[in-house]
């Protein structure tokens, strides 16, 4: 038996391109509680296209919460009201018949709107290009487990590496700060032996680019952790702060 459909009012941010002003447009939809949020938007887009109207632009890829492509702000919450899921994992059974849902793009000066609900998150790529890697310029492929790493440390590094780079931390932060993202990327290397040679240069380079791109600073509200689909911990931000201070001391040592 099919479950009773929900009648919802969607107030969706529509914006032609990055230069034009946007506004909210109302859409009435009927949707199965078993549908995902993105499936609801797919259905809406089908109906819009049938009417010859332009589809609502939004991003998605894997639709199983691991790629970091999707991301909408639903009633003021990045990835919607549930904890530790991406927008694609949000199902309509979490809403009530008759609800009004405001659907907005991630808002940050460093994430300009490309169209409707799509934002330009290439700033994250620029931060990674500045230092989010380890340089292995020579030699054969090292044997797995050739370097012993305590289980607790490798788990911590894995927890940090779980970041999918979706940008919900920036969207949730009242300062549009990218500190949770940057700290996760810094931590995943800082915790492991392979990350040590470039550890202190890395943190300085990544923070520099982060600042240049116009992300805000961290006021320790911890909204980022609460909204992160992967539950990345703000203890990573503390590690980033520590390493940034240490970098000032250590990098001085090697400078001539």
């Amino acid at each position: 038996m099919e479950a009773k459909k929900l009648n919802l009012t969607l107030k969706i941010w529509r914006q032609k391109n990055s230069n034009s002003a946007g506004s909210f447009i109302d859409y009435k939809v009927q949707v199965s509680p078993d549908a995902s949020f993105l499936e609801m938007l797919d259905e809406l887009n089908n109906s819009l296209e049938l009417k010859g109207e332009e589809a609502v632009h939004f991003e998605s890829d894997c639709r199983e919460g691991i790629c970091g492509t999707c991301g909408l702000v639903i009633n003021g919450r990045p990835h919607g009201p549930l904890a530790k899921i991406a927008t694609c994992q949000l199902h309509m059974r979490n809403f009530k018949d008759g609800d009004t849902l405001w659907v907005e793009p991630f808002r940050a000066k460093a994430f300009s709107v490309i169209k409707d609900l799509m934002v330009d998150r290439s700033g994250f790529d620029k931060i990674l290009q500045a230092g989010g890697y380890i340089s292995v310029n020579t030699g054969g492929v090292p044997d797995a487990n050739a370097i012993p790493i305590p289980k607790e440390i490798s788990s911590l590094a894995m927890d940090a590496a779980a970041c999918i780079g979706c940008g919900a931390c920036v969207a949730a932060c009242k300062n549009a700060s990218a500190m949770l993202f940057v700290s996760a990327k810094v931590s995943q290397y800082a915790l492991l032996p392979q990350g040590q040679p470039e550890r202190y240069q890395r943190v300085e380079k990544m923070v520099k680019v982060m600042d240049e791109l116009g992300f805000g600073s961290c006021t320790n509200t911890y909204a980022c952790e609460a909204e992160c689909p992967k539950g990345i911990s703000v203890t990573n931000i503390a590690r980033l702060n520590r390493d940034f201070i240490m970098a000032k001391i250590k990098n001085k040592e090697v400078e001539v």
Binding site: N75, R77, R107, N175, G214
Partner: peptide, 13 residues
């Protein structure tokens, strides 16, 4: 930090 947000959200979550 105000500037870093740019456009404010309609709904404050």
């Amino acid at each position: 930090n105000k500037r870093a947000r740019g456009v404010n959200y309609k709904v404050n979550g």
